[in-house]
C-alpha cells in the first residue's frame, strides 16, 4: 500500500506522518492526531461539521485528502482556547446559547472565526451567508447568529490583541 510522507502544522504544532493517499484530512485530524473536536456529520460534503481552517480558509475536511494539505497549516477548534480563556467566538456560543446538541458547533465556530478575521463587523446577512455551509438541526440559527455578533463585538473591543486565531503563530 502506497504511503506518502506529509508535514502539517496543526494548531501551531508541527506534525510528520506517513499516510495512505486516500486518507481524508478529517480522519487524519481525528484518528491520527486524536483531535476529536472536529466532527464527522454527513460525510457527503453537505453539513460542515468537519470544517477546519486550511491556510486560513474554512473548508470541509471530509472533502480534502490529507496529502493535499502537505506543507499547510490547519486550525481546529482545539486551537482556539488560550491559557484557559475561551476564544471570543467560543465565548459567544456559551453566552448566547448558540448550541443545543453541539454537534455542528466546532465547524460552525471555525467558519465564524474565519469570517471575523476577514470581516470584523459583519451584518446579520453577511453572517447568515457565511454560515450557509454549516447545518444546525437544533437551533434554527437565531442564537448562532447572536453568538457570532457577540464575538464580533468582543473582538472589536479588544482588537487587535485577541482578534487573531489562537495557535496561529
Amino acid at each position: 500500500m502506497e504511503r506518502v510522507p506529509i508535514q502539517l502544522t496543526v494548531n501551531g504544532q508541527p506534525y510528520q506522518a506517513e499516510v495512505e493517499p486516500r486518507m481524508l484530512l478529517v480522519h487524519f485530524i481525528r484518528d491520527v492526531l486524536n483531535l476529536t473536536g472536529t466532527h464527522i456529520g454527513c460525510d457527503t460534503t453537505s453539513c460542515g461539521a468537519c470544517t477546519v481552517l486550511w491556510d486560513g480558509r474554512p473548508v470541509k475536511s471530509c472533502t480534502v485528502f490529507a496529502v493535499q494539505a502537505d506543507g499547510g497549516e490547519i486550525q481546529t477548534v482545539e486551537g482556539l482556547e488560550r491559557d484557559g480563556q475561551l476564544h471570543p467566538v467560543q465565548e459567544g456560543f456559551w453566552e448566547e446559547h448558540g448550541l443545543q446538541c453541539g454537534f455542528c458547533t466546532p465547524g460552525m465556530i471555525m467558519t465564524a472565526v474565519a469570517l471575523l478575521q476577514e470581516n470584523p463587523d459583519p451584518s446579520e446577512e453577511e453572517i447568515r451567508k457565511a454560515i450557509a455551509g454549516n447545518l444546525c438541526r437544533c437551533t434554527g440559527y437565531v442564537n448562532i447568529v447572536k453568538a457570532i455578533q457577540y464575538a464580533a463585538r468582543k473582538m472589536r473591543e479588544t482588537a487587535p490583541a485577541t482578534a487573531g486565531i489562537a495557535g496561529g503563530e
Binding site: 460534503t45 460542515g48 470544517t51 480558509r57 474554512p58 473548508v59 470541509k60 472533502t63 480534502v64 467558519t111 451567508k129 457565511a130 450557509a132 455551509g133 454549516n134
Partner: peptide, 9 residues
C-alpha cells in the same frame, strides 16, 4: 454554487 466552504476549494 454549493456553499461558501465548498466554494473556497
Amino acid at each position: 454554487i454549493a456553499d461558501p466552504l465548498v466554494r473556497n476549494l
